[in-house]
C-alpha cells in the first residue's frame, strides 16, 4: 500500500477538521496550482493552544498530516507548537512516501503561520527568522519538490 495504516486512519477519519469562527490565529500555506493548501486555526489561552482545527485542499497525505499536526499542538504552549517539525509529524504517522514528504513540511508551516498570525494580532514581539515565507512553491525549497 502507498500509505501506512496510520496515514489512512487520519485521512479517512481526520481529527479537528472544520473551520473555527473565533480563532486567535489562522495560518494558510501552499497554493492550488501545486495542489495543496492547508489552513490551520488555533485558539490560545494563557499561551496554551486550547483548540486547533484545519481545512485542507490536497491529497491523502496532506489531509492526514494536517490532522496529525493539529492533534500534536493541542494542549501545548505556543512556543512548543513552533518547535513542531515535519519530521515529528511524519514519524507520528509511521512514515510517508518520499514524494509526499512536502505535505508534512506544509503542515509544519501551516502551524507556524497560525502562530505568527496570533503573535501579529496580539502585538507579541517575535524573531522574524522563525518564519519562512511558504506562500508559494516557487520561493520555497523546503520540501525538495523543486
Amino acid at each position: 500500500m502507498l500509505y501506512s495504516e496510520k496515514v489512512m486512519d487520519h485521512f479517512q477519519h481526520p481529527r479537528n477538521v472544520g473551520k473555527m469562527d473565533d480563532a486567535d490565529g489562522i495560518g494558510e500555506v501552499g497554493n492550488a496550482v501545486c495542489g495543496d493548501i492547508m489552513r490551520v486555526y488555533i485558539k490560545v489561552k494563557d499561551n496554551i493552544i486550547t483548540d486547533a482545527k484545519f481545512i485542507t485542499f490536497g491529497c491523502g497525505s496532506a489531509i492526514a498530516t494536517s490532522s496529525m499536526a493539529t492533534e500534536m499542538i493541542k494542549g501545548r504552549s505556543v512556543d512548543e507548537a513552533l518547535e513542531l517539525s515535519n519530521k515529528a509529524v511524519v514519524e507520528a504517522l509511521d512514515g510517508l512516501p518520499t514524494h509526499k514528504i512536502h505535505c508534512s513540511v506544509l503542515a509544519e508551516e501551516a502551524v507556524k503561520a497560525a502562530v505568527k498570525d496570533y503573535y501579529d494580532k496580539n502585538g507579541i514581539a517575535y524573531d522574524k527568522e522563525l518564519f519562512k515565507d511558504c506562500e508559494n512553491c516557487e520561493d520555497c525549497d523546503a520540501c525538495g519538490n523543486k
Binding site: 485521512f11 479517512q12 495542489g35 490536497g58 491529497c59 491523502g60 496532506a62 509526499k100 519538490n145
Partner: peptide
C-alpha cells in the same frame, strides 16, 4: 484534489483514476 477523491472512492469499492499531481508523482 484528485488523489483524496480516488482514495475515498476506493473506500467505497470504486476503482477509478485521476490526473492530479499527487497521482502523477510530480507537482
Amino acid at each position: 484534489e484528485g488523489e483524496s477523491l480516488l482514495l475515498l472512492l476506493d473506500a467505497k469499492h470504486i476503482a477509478a483514476s485521476s490526473g492530479s499531481a499527487c497521482t502523477s508523482g510530480s507537482l
